[in-house]
Simulated assay, not measured.
Amino acid sequence: MTRKLYWDEPYSRKFTATVEELDGNNVVLDRTLFYPRGGGVSCDIGTLGGTSVVETIRSEDKILHSLTFVPSFGKGQSVHGELDWERRHRLMRMHTAGHLLSAILYTKVNARITGNQIDVDRSRMDFNLEAFDRAQIEGFVQEANSLIQKDAAVKTYFMEREEALKRPELVKLAEAFPPAEKQLRIVEIEGIDKQADGGLHVQKLSEIGTIQLLKLENKGKTNRRLYYDLQ
Rank of each mutant, 00 (worst) to 15 (best):
Q203E: 14
I192S: 07
P178I: 08
I137C: 09
E163F: 01
M159S: 08
S72K: 08
L91H: 04
A144T: 03
D151Q: 09
A180Y: 13
A103L: 11
K219I: 09
I57H: 11
A131T: 14
N223M: 02
T2V: 06
L214P: 01
R161A: 11
L33Y: 06
T68N: 14
L67P: 01
E86W: 01
K172P: 05
T51Q: 10
V202W: 00
L213S: 05
E169T: 12
D151F: 07
R13K: 12
L105A: 08
P10E: 12
M125K: 06
R185C: 06
L214H: 03
V154I: 15
Q231I: 11
R124C: 10
H65D: 02
Q136S: 14
G50I: 02
F140Q: 00
N128G: 00
F15Y: 06
K172D: 04
K4G: 07
M125Y: 11
R225P: 05
P10V: 08
H99T: 12
G98V: 02
R3I: 15
I104Y: 04
P36N: 03
C43P: 06
K62P: 01
R112F: 09
E130C: 12
L173E: 10
L101R: 04
H99L: 09
T18G: 10
Q142G: 12
E217P: 10
E86A: 11
Q231F: 03
L29M: 05
E163S: 09
W85Y: 14
R58M: 10
L216W: 04
E188K: 02
L22P: 01
L48M: 01
D229L: 06
A174L: 06
L83E: 06
G38P: 06
E207G: 02
Y106M: 09
G46C: 01
R13W: 02
L230K: 09
A97Y: 02
H89W: 09
G199E: 05
R93K: 15
D133L: 04
Q149H: 13
L91G: 07
K221I: 10
L64F: 05
R90I: 12
L170C: 05
G49E: 00
S78N: 08
L170V: 04
T96N: 09
L230C: 11
